[in-house]
Computed example of a mutant assay.
Amino acid sequence: MNEIVIQNLMSPVVLFFVLGIAAALVKSDLAFPKALSDALSIYLLIAIGLKGGIELANYSIESVFAPILAALFLGGIIPFLALGAMKLIGMDLKNAIGIAATYGSISIVTYGAAVAFMDQTGTSYEGFMNALVVLMESPAILVSLLLLKVLENKNELSGYAQRAGFVAFPSGLIDKEVIRESLFGKSVLLLMGSLFIGWILGESAIPAVKPLFIDLYGSILILFLLNMGLIAGQRLPEIKKYGVKLLAFGMIAPLVFGTIGVLVGSLIGLSLGGTALMGVLAGSASYIAAPAALKTSVPEANPSIYLGLSLGVTFPFNLIIGIPVYFEIAKWIQ
């Protein structure tokens, strides 16, 4: 397990994120043009959606219907729970939405480490879990952006900022414009549209998309994380006002959400390995898909908070503690 931890923490994407933070802290003149920054986000959203759709096409709808419903449930409920925690911390709306989207979405790298853990322990799991990985990246982003649009649609937004509380949802609050902006905003549109295209075309799409969206994915992800590191480093001082509370959230939230994921996996009848992996997915936090969506849809949200917390606290916490804990909980339940 120690080798997995070191391997992931010393990966190029993590180290380039750290390099970006360092460059910002020493006030380097390194900067990404806005057009390039936007292009990197667009690329990642398309690549993630395509890969998930192609993987999902390998299975019949009947075989993955219950797991898909479970993934949608987790992607829908976790943002609300994260938003509730942010209320207790006293965080402003935009950054609270950033946390909700980040922790509702998932970490592919954490999932990869969990699969390696399953292999080491000789634990089998359902093959369609690989398809759920990408499928679970989207619902939380959609739910979080919808929540943002709903809250922004009413004058109570200023009250939210002052009270660090939540506004009531009066009748008629969710109008057609709110739904349209949430469903067809560029981040959700690209992610879900690419997922649908990959699912429809299946493996026949691989020859066309492989050179750009599969082969170059890792290298372009490095550029994206370098840019996010620059942004996070520039806004790092803003995170100090939340202090220990935010740090505690980064370690407690994964255990809470992961336990919920294990319970859901057990309820839908997954194997021990599948149940544990569902817990890993629910307990992980995104540092790719959600930040790419937030970068374009909620630019006011501070990456130092949502990305720094997910990558700097929850990611290593899950690698060291979370994965074996979710596995043990799954064993106990089953």
Results as ranks from 00 to 15, higher is better:
F65V: 02
E62R: 00
L83K: 03
A57D: 13
I89T: 13
M86T: 10
A57I: 05
I77S: 07
A82M: 14
I77L: 14
I89D: 15
E62F: 12
I78F: 09
G76F: 01
G84R: 15
M86C: 11
S63T: 13
F65T: 02
A82S: 15
M91D: 14
I61A: 03
I78H: 08
A71W: 01
V64T: 13
M86P: 06
A71Y: 07
S63P: 04
K87N: 09
E62S: 04
A82V: 15
P79A: 09
F73Y: 11
P79S: 08
S63V: 04
G75E: 03
P79D: 07
P79V: 09
L83P: 00
P79F: 04
E62M: 06
A85M: 11
A85S: 13
A82R: 11
G90Q: 03
I61D: 05
A71K: 00
L74Y: 13
G76Q: 00
A82Y: 11
S60N: 08
L83W: 14
L74S: 07
I61N: 01
S63M: 12
I68N: 11
L88I: 13
L72R: 11
G76A: 07
G75W: 13
A57V: 01
F80I: 01
M91P: 11
L74K: 05
L69D: 04
L81S: 06
F80M: 07
A57H: 14
K87V: 08
F80D: 00
L74I: 08
G84V: 12
Y59R: 03
A57R: 08
E62V: 11
